[in-house]
Design a protein around this nucleic acid. Structure first.
Lengths: 138, 138
DNA sequence: TGATTTGTAACAGAATTGGTTACTTTTAGC
DNA sequence: GCTAAAAGTAACCAATTCTGTTACAAATCA
């Protein structure tokens, strides 16, 4: 992967967490992330679908956290903006003649699963509150 | 990420491990992986630089494992074909005016580091010999 | 009603990726 | 030495993905 969406998402969530209770419009979030408001709004939709934030239209609209920072893990943020698998799979079916080719996909799937689990386990150990603390500590 | 290079690499290493002692040309590896020999040769160069295989030119040439399968971890294979980071970073520098923007990159780097470590720790627990065993078991 | 904000579609430009062709270099065996 | 086989390598293509951008519709508050 080489997508900055997770970095953007953590950034946005951290801003929302530090600006308690007030709605924050995509324009302001875009400014601190240094990107376009539409990029932020696309991200907000995913965070919303994951149940992490709410958004409101109209004047004084914007985004707010739905949960306290201590209750939001980085795993949830990651899952909101990334789909499952870390590694890619064979783009074409391997040779079914070769004993390795015949079974490699199954085996890779197990490896994939273990790797995903390990990553998620680690991300689950960090919350948005931890991020806020680290931001303050420098 | 969405690259199949790790899957290709594990596949290739598994074939080399099962065809003990004989050189395996890129054309044969390409057949079982179902891709082009040049794609395989590019991969072989990376595996070679990582010290996992040797290659030989000329007739009867090809690739061979340099180590026994029990001594090759999936972490080594992964590192051979992937560079470090799981997540991408902010493409443009975040706003230095915003307290979050000013420090988020540092914090993200720590998160990145922990995630990388967790992944590598898990991949280190699996060897090429384990892959061979799983391939036989089905 | 008007201003503000999200939602959304469409598209552009860049980067990455796997694949392909073609050529050079090395090497084993006759 | 010649020939065939193989890796190494450069150049390019097509597809995909990603961020960024413009533009507009839909909702909502004052």
């Amino acid at each position: 992967m080489q997508s900055c969406r997770f970095a953007f998402a953590v950034h946005v969530m951290a801003v929302l967490a530090s600006e308690k209770s007030d709605c924050c419009p995509s324009s302001r979030l875009a400014q601190t992330v240094n990107t376009n408001p539409v990029v932020i709004r696309r991200l907000l939709i995913e965070l919303q679908e994951a149940g992490l934030i709410s958004t409101f239209r109209g004047p004084q609209g914007g985004a707010v956290l739905k949960r306290k920072p201590e209750k939001v893990t980085l795993r949830e943020i990651h899952r909101a903006v990334h789909q499952g698998n870390i590694f890619g799979t064979h783009p074409h079916q391997p040779s079914q003649e070769c004993p390795v080719g015949k079974r490699i996909s199954q085996v890779m799937q197990r490896i994939q699963h273990r790797a995903n689990r390990a990553l998620e386990r680690e991300l689950e150990r960090m919350t948005l509150a931890d991020v806020l603390r680290d931001l303050r500590k420098g």
